[in-house]
Each structure stands twice: as C-alpha cells, then as structure tokens.
C-alpha cells in the first residue's frame, strides 16, 4: 500500500481531500470537527469549527471557517469545486467537549455543546443528514477522515481509538 497522504486542517480552518487522501485535525476540545462526504465520488471535506455563530464576530476580515454557520456553506462551495454531488452528502462530527467543569457554568464554558448545536442547525438548514457523531464528554480528540472509506477515526487520551 502507498503511504496515505494526510491533509492537515488547522484550528478555524477547512479543507477538502479526495483520491484516498485523509483529512486530519488535532486537539479538538470545545471545537467541533465536522466532515462532509460524497461516497459516490469519494470526496471528503472537513472543518475545524471554533465558535457557534458569526453573529458574535467582531473581526474585520471574517474567517468563515471559524464559525459553524459560515463554515458549512464555505465547505459546500469547496466540495462542489472538487466535483462532489452536494445532494448526496452526509455529515459526521466529533468534539464539542466541555473540558473544564465550573460550578455555575458560564456561557463560555458551555461553548462545546453550543458548537455542536449550531453545527446541527446549520446542517439541517442545508438538509445534510448527520450519519454519525461522537460529541460531548470532557476530553480532547484528534480526528482523521479517510476519503476512500468515509470512516472517521477518533483518538483520545482517555478513551483510545474509535471509528465512526
């Protein structure tokens, strides 16, 4: 077997891979790693979402990959450019943990669950089904998404390796 090509997706970043390459993002805590997949053409996309909504953005030049509501449309454009059939896409997601538990739990501490909720809402808006997810908990995750099989591999310090 050939050495698989791994495309890195940074924090608040997104990318697309095909032809057997894999997408990888590391150290997801409250962030959500969201993947889209066209199984027919074996085209995969991944976004590393940091915040739930671009409504709270105060930056001049908006980084669309950072927010759930803007990352998904951008990823759809990139998937289409790569030749994906948008009507056949399915989504998976991982992350959205709550790493620290504070008594009281301010809004910013709940950022993980909020990222998951917003990601679901944005996908529903585009009628993209979520076929699998591994979200929540209180631990970090590193994920890798194989464009050949559509399998999402999740690694964590506490819970080892899991495939969805």
């Amino acid at each position: 077997m050939n050495e698989a090509v791994i495309v890195k997706v940074g924090m608040a970043d997104l990318n697309v891979a095909a032809a057997g390459a894999s997408l990888r993002t590391t150290g997801l805590g409250s962030c959500v790693g969201l993947t889209l997949y066209d199984a027919g053409r074996r085209i995969a996309g991944m976004a590393h979402i940091m915040l739930p909504s671009s409504e709270i953005a105060r930056e001049g030049q908006l980084n669309v990959a950072k927010y759930a509501d803007t990352a998904i449309p951008e990823l759809l454009v990139r998937m289409k450019d790569a030749g994906a059939d948008l009507s056949r896409l399915v989504a998976k997601m991982a992350g959205g943990a709550q790493m620290f538990a504070f008594a009281g739990g301010s809004d910013s501490m709940r950022i993980g669950p909020r990222n998951v909720e917003s990601s679901h809402a944005a996908l529903a808006k585009w009628s993209i089904p979520v076929v699998a997810e591994d979200t929540g908990g209180n631990y970090g995750r590193t994920i890798e998404f194989d464009s050949l099989s559509g399998v999402l591999t999740i690694r964590s310090v506490q819970n080892g390796v899991k495939e969805i």
Partner: peptide, 27 residues
C-alpha cells in the same frame, strides 16, 4: 480568580478555552 479547574489532556483541546474571547476578533 475563580475556583480552579483541572484537566489532564491534549494541550490543543485545553488551550482553546483561553482563546474564545480573542476568537471573535481574529486568529
């Protein structure tokens, strides 16, 4: 300071919590 909270985990996953306030302003 608030009451401390502790975690043993990946640095990337942990440090995100310190970046949320900056997150809305840039990278």
């Amino acid at each position: 300071p608030t009451v401390p909270s502790i975690a043993v985990d990946m640095a990337g996953a942990i440090l995100t919590y310190g970046l949320l306030q900056f997150g809305t302003m840039g990278d």
